[in-house]
Simulated assay, not measured.
Amino acid sequence: MKRKIDLLKAITTFIKVADKKSFTAVARELNIVTSAISRQVADLEKHFSCQLLYRTTRAMHLTAEGKQYYKEFKEITEKIEHLENKDEGLDGSLKGHITVSAPQGSESLGFLDAASEFMKKNPEVTVSWLFVNRYVNMVEEGIDLSIRMGELEDSSYIARRYKSVDINFVASPSYIKKYDEPKNPNDLTKHLCITDSSNRHPNKWRYCENKKEKFIKITSYTDSNNGETAARLAANGNGIAYLPSFFTHSYLSTGELVPVMQAYEFESLPASLVYPANLMMNKTLKAFVQFLLSYED
């Protein structure tokens, strides 16, 4: 009795291996171990009782049967992609559902206004929002589009630069009057620091000196897993905070917060629209991303 396998997944993996002629390259693209790729191809060969690939330590190529199956598999996957991408209504309008994740408090970047306009123009498109201050595994959590801050390391995703975000050292005028203003990062060890515990390293603050990235270890006086709360605590005079500008801009504009140690700030960090490469085949998502990038307040 043949072991049950995910046939479509195995077929898709085999096509990628045949195209790239490398298990390792496909494993890197899909962000899984090479042995898992090899197992999927082996399962496919066992399922169809044939050898699809000749594999040696130096080369890999399709067998005669492999060439025939490759052609037919491509036709199957193209038909499935066509069916999955039928996301246009009878009148040519877009339809479908998009799930978006973003950091809490980042609404001020303007994407909610842009999304609202997009939905008005495309009433058959629905959008769900997940606002969290943690790393989101897009595949496992079913996220189509993620708004992320800073430089991105994961090459299995596509990132389109959307906006820029400043990261500010801030304190209230009343705090500075009582404790004086820190002149350099080393002074922070003598101050009350407010940390955002949702960050991966909340007690390790990043700064720029002589155009080089450096870090200072601080002791948290009070913390919150919500940047908006941290900003409010700073505005109330509880200490110094280091936060993205979308948390602090309203307090800076009213004077409740003022910037400190500006000479040690980095240039703006990118805020990017991030999505798995294979999802760009989805016409609705593609149109949504393009609308966000081109939208002007």
Rank of each mutant, 00 (worst) to 15 (best):
K95I: 07
T34C: 12
E78Y: 06
I80P: 07
S172V: 07
D6R: 11
K177A: 12
D113P: 03
K183L: 13
K217V: 13
T63P: 02
L8H: 08
S93V: 02
Y207H: 14
V139P: 00
Y264C: 06
Q262R: 09
A235E: 01
T77W: 03
T195S: 15
A271I: 07
R55I: 14
G96E: 08
Y242A: 05
L44K: 10
S38G: 14
V127D: 04
A234P: 00
D154S: 08
M60L: 14
N186Q: 13
Q51W: 11
T248A: 03
I15R: 10
L243G: 05
F246Q: 03
K67E: 10
P173H: 09
L83F: 10
K214Y: 13
L152D: 01
M281L: 14
H191A: 14
K9D: 11
F118A: 09
R148Y: 02
V165R: 01
G142D: 12
K79F: 09
D180N: 15
Q262E: 14
K4P: 08
N278S: 09
H97C: 05
N225V: 02
R160P: 00
Q290T: 13
L188C: 12
K67H: 02
V33E: 15
R3P: 07
D6S: 12
S128T: 15
A27W: 02
R55N: 10
L109I: 10
A234T: 00
E141T: 11
Q68Y: 12
C208Y: 14
K214L: 15
E213C: 15
R161L: 09
H47F: 15
H61T: 05
L257P: 06
K190G: 10
R161E: 13
E153M: 04
Y251R: 04
A263I: 00
T12R: 09
I32V: 15
Y207T: 12
K79R: 08
S164I: 02
A231F: 01
I158S: 06
T34Y: 07
S250C: 07
E124C: 14
N168Q: 13
I76D: 03
T284Y: 11
I80E: 10
L94K: 01
R134N: 12
K21T: 00
Q104T: 11
Y179L: 09
K95R: 09
A115K: 07
Y162Q: 02
Y175C: 06
T254C: 09
E117C: 12
I194G: 05
E107V: 04
L130Q: 14
E84W: 11
H249S: 05
R3Q: 15
S172H: 05
L112Y: 13
F131I: 01
K177G: 02
L62A: 06
F73G: 10
T77S: 02
A102P: 01
F215I: 10
V170E: 01
P103F: 04
K74G: 07
L8Q: 09
L243P: 01
A287Q: 06
S268C: 11
I37W: 04
E78T: 08
E151S: 11
A159N: 04
C50K: 07
R39N: 04
T24N: 11
S198V: 13
P123M: 13
A102H: 09
Q290E: 15
I15G: 00
S156F: 04
A42V: 13
F266I: 03
A287K: 13
K286D: 12
F169T: 05
